[in-house]
Design a protein around this nucleic acid. Structure first.
Lengths: 211, 211, 211, 211
DNA sequence: CATGAATGAGTCTTCATTCAT
DNA sequence: GATGAATGAAGACTCATTCAT
């Protein structure tokens, strides 16, 4: 069996109508995913929810997988952007400010639409999703790494490794909030804990620098 | 078609032959999952790999989902047991010993068969998997919580919350190792980092106690 | 889009029931093709006519194309066998006997079930059909070539070429009978004409040999 | 859905622009057919190749089938015209001249664009194509029949039958050239063989007439 | 007239599950 | 208990055709 693994969008919308259709399909996909789960996510159901025909989906996405990827990508993109912006904003500042800003940016971005974040975690991994996630992960690690390197009051040894571990340490607890392993209402407290955890960790692996 | 949502094993193997067959099916499932991925995991393929007929699978599992769950459960069970044992072994000891032991137990258990751990992450979430994962997560948090409460040199405030955050902070980086977001060869270093991170965090959220 | 072009049969029937099913599917395919034409030949219709489920078709053929090919192949096989046998039977005989026998064998085989022959002509060519037809054509040409080489009363110069042209000269008129460009009732007369044509042609391209 | 079986062109192009568009569509159809095969022949692809929109195709053809038929018809028309002209040119001449001219006209016309001829053979038969082919076949047979009747040095008994068989005898070998069952480079030799075959056959079924 | 986005019926194909042998 | 042939519901995807712009 040969499966179409091409993921690139099939056409770029030229008419205004097209852009609207793409948007509508995208949203419908997310809605079905959130409200009915992955196994209920059929092209028919998406089309139905979007109020378009199945054919329209294939006008813009070469296959169902590509649609899924697009939705996942957009989500990850907003999250990573939030983190990147936070990093950019705190360059050259002390460790404490960095920890606080990064944690806030990441947690808030992930919890902004918890249902969506949760639904997307359910997406089964595949070559395509793995690639995408890998790309975003790298961006995150790079942003953190750069940030750490610019720190005003500490010098982090092995910034690449530390950035990766730090990133991982944020991901896990947020996942727990999303799965309600920790009640969502405790988000604020968890955020504080993560800030504390981040700062404690970073201080441990950094040498203080006196200006 | 009404979907069978029963998950409980259809029969407990009473005879040696039965037990062996269950085992064979279980292993075959894991092998197919690891070598060909989730979407190739069909009952026919499992039966084939196991050297039994499809019918035999249904002799022991009410449906495919139950088989999947069983495989996931066994994996999670070995991991949680390792953690629980580590916790039991360190009751009443100082924070540093606890951090080191828990990190070692968890990381080693997860990385013992990285291919298996990785493959199981790919399993799409569903009501059944969510329940299972939730159950294991609770056990993990309880174990950590109890452990912290028994600490000889520190008193952790809000042990439930801390246990949860701590657990999360371990999960994330290990996931990164499994997806090679951090190269697997760096496991040892990551383990050290996680020990450092754990200890730093716990010290931050604990009040020292002098015996 | 990647299309499955594997054509080899999916499984060899092991149980008696299987063999019967294969046969039933084969016949049904032919019936649908004959009675409703190529564009009505859907897997659903074949299964329906065969009295089995769609799934059963895929138990024995990897895809619809393979089924078509199998049907075509069996037909061509019976025709080519008839010709090969006629050739074998006339080895070493005079030109006239050869011409008569080959024409009779071919025409009779093709006209035995005119509806079937006609239906199969409608099959659109594809890589797979082309290969098949090429194989059969070669066998026909070889058989004729060998036959001519064994002739007792004449020596054919360029037997390969002559065999090919001769074969072609038989194919065309028979096709006309099948499409009713020549009324089917005139088969007998056409056969005589083809015998005359064959003999006249062969005599023209052969040098008489006196024993 | 009721299928539109109307085949007649939707409008006769009155303006130069229209005629040009029809032409462009016609050519594009042929090109797609030749280069990508029948199953790739979609209206979208034709429109794309033609540099027009799908809608434009429907401006000039009621449906896809009609387009196909038109293309086939034009091809067959050029072939039959060549044959008819050859026949007209040889009226009243001797058998040998007739055989030579007809063979030359037919073979050359068919082999003029072998890729096109080949591609059109792949077209699956349907009521519409059958009718078309039948009409052309009749014209061919009539032309040959008339030709034979005018022969100066022989009287063909049963000219209708003979014309049909003769026509068929030419069709087959040319098909073999097109499918490469006989290498295309051998066209010239095959043409000679066909001339010989034709003459031999016609002499066999004719009575000599002395002027 | 031209465009091309939208349509949706129609196809193939898969695969969990059953049950006669 | 074991087998594996049979089932058929379900889903992805195509593409001729229409029609609003």
């Amino acid at each position: 069996m040969a499966i179409n693994t091409d993921i690139s969008p099939r056409k770029s919308p030229r008419q205004a109508r097209s852009a609207a259709t793409v948007e509508v399909i995208h949203d419908a996909t997310l809605q079905v995913l959130v409200s009915q789960g992955l196994q209920a996510l059929t092209t028919a159901r998406v089309a139905d929810r979007a109020g378009v025909s199945v054919g329209s989906i294939y006008q813009y996405y070469p296959n169902k997988q590509a649609l899924l990827i697009a939705v996942l990508e957009r989500h990850l993109e907003t999250v990573i952007r939030a983190v990147e912006q936070a990093c950019a904003a705190r360059r050259g500042q002390p460790l404490a400010a960095m920890a606080e800003a990064v944690v806030r940016a990441y947690v808030d971005a992930k919890l902004h639409r918890p249902d969506v974040s949760r639904a997307l975690y359910a997406m089964p991994s595949s070559a395509a999703t793995d690639t995408l996630v890998a790309r975003i992960t790298v961006r995150g690690q790079l942003a953190l790494c750069d940030l750490l390197a610019s720190c005003s009051d500490a010098r982090v040894l092995e910034p690449t490794l530390v950035a990766a571990v730090w990133a991982g340490a944020l991901v896990g607890p947020v996942q727990m909030l999303l799965t309600e392993a920790i009640p969502l209402e405790r988000s604020a407290v968890v955020r504080e804990q993560l800030t504390a955890l981040s700062l404690a960790y970073l201080r441990t692996v950094a040498r203080p620098v006196h200006a």
